[in-house]
Amino acid sequence: MESTQNTLAALSEGMADAVANAGRSIVRVHGRRRHPGSGVVYAPDLVLTAGHVLEREEDLSVETADGRTLPARLLGRDHSTDLAVLRVDNLGVEAATPAEGEARVGQISLAVASPGRGDGPRATFGIVSSVGGPIRTRRGPRLERYIQTDASPYPGLSGGPLVDVGGKVVGIMVAGWGRGAAFAVPVDLAWRVAGALQERGTVRRGYLGILSQPVRLPGGEKIDLTQKGGLLVVGVEDGSPAGRGGLMVGDIVATLDGQPVEDTDDLLVLLSGDRVGRAVPVKVVRGGEPQELEITVGERG
């Protein structure tokens, strides 16, 4: 019995330490009339938060754990991931530490929110209940990857970190997509989006310029593919990247840059980020035979 109590006490102390560690890098974000959100300092004078907590783009401010209220400037937001970046001059708050590797289903997760006035950070406890992607959010866009936790969502949680038992950030909370479920953007994706927003104010989104529909791949073994489906091209825009790369109506797109494409969500995910403007190999099935094309991914204006 004593051994069990000691184990539970150690776990309890460890979780409290994790919240305290994470709390040093969290600020309160004032960007809407009700329910301030949270934000994570990810680099000097830079705060990553959930885009939906910013109902305005001016008169923004953050409140630090030591009671300072500082003006903030919006550098950019990405509606697909529901993330936004703020610059806060002379913030003087240490940056959070991202966790290494991917979140695992079943691992303990702590969703940490900004402090209230005169209080320390707030936290809710759960486990990582699922990971995956893409997923269509309640607000419309598709998220490339997500972490779902059963930690209870509550007002003020959005924009705060989901942390592991060491207090390292595994994701940024963008709660409220599901019915009572809490979701987070995985930290590697969140940091990548933050870098793009910091640099350009937007995230580059690519396109091929096709109309398509999912179909079953004919004779996948014959064309050295294990996936069951692909995207049948039913239309190609004039002058589009697909047209210039030789893609034709009737082709079935099977892979892009070596990654399987079984539906439109797969394609949209693969067209984002550093593939924009780059020539990538596209494997297609044409007349029952595999062919490989090279297509330069375009950028949506």
Results as ranks from 00 to 15, higher is better:
69 T>P: 03
137 T>M: 14
102 E>T: 02
181 A>Q: 13
20 A>T: 14
270 L>M: 03
29 V>S: 11
107 Q>L: 05
196 A>N: 11
123 A>W: 04
2 E>W: 01
200 R>S: 14
291 Q>Y: 14
101 G>H: 05
127 I>L: 15
147 I>Y: 00
194 A>G: 07
49 T>K: 08
28 R>K: 04
276 V>E: 07
1 M>H: 14
271 L>S: 06
28 R>I: 00
224 D>M: 07
97 T>H: 01
13 E>R: 11
101 G>A: 11
198 Q>V: 09
285 V>E: 09
208 L>N: 01
112 V>I: 12
280 V>G: 08
17 D>I: 11
266 D>A: 08
77 R>E: 00
61 S>M: 09
207 Y>M: 14
183 F>A: 11
166 G>Y: 14
19 V>G: 10
61 S>Y: 07
108 I>W: 09
210 I>L: 10
119 D>S: 13
223 I>N: 10
115 P>M: 01
202 T>C: 01
69 T>I: 06
87 R>V: 13
89 D>W: 12
5 Q>G: 02
56 R>V: 00
239 G>H: 08
197 L>A: 12
72 A>D: 02
123 A>T: 07
142 R>H: 13
271 L>Y: 06
288 G>Q: 12
77 R>M: 06
23 G>D: 08
240 S>D: 03
224 D>Q: 12
215 V>Q: 05
10 A>Q: 15
149 T>N: 03
37 G>S: 07
68 R>K: 03
162 L>H: 05
27 V>M: 00
224 D>G: 13
279 A>V: 15
88 V>C: 03
205 R>M: 14
32 R>C: 14
71 P>Y: 06
134 P>Q: 04
42 Y>D: 03
172 I>K: 12
77 R>C: 01
289 E>R: 15
230 G>Q: 06
252 I>R: 12
209 G>R: 05
202 T>H: 15
11 L>I: 15
240 S>T: 08
284 V>M: 07
230 G>Y: 02
1 M>T: 09
57 E>S: 09
24 R>P: 05
96 A>I: 07
146 Y>T: 06
130 S>Q: 10
205 R>Q: 15
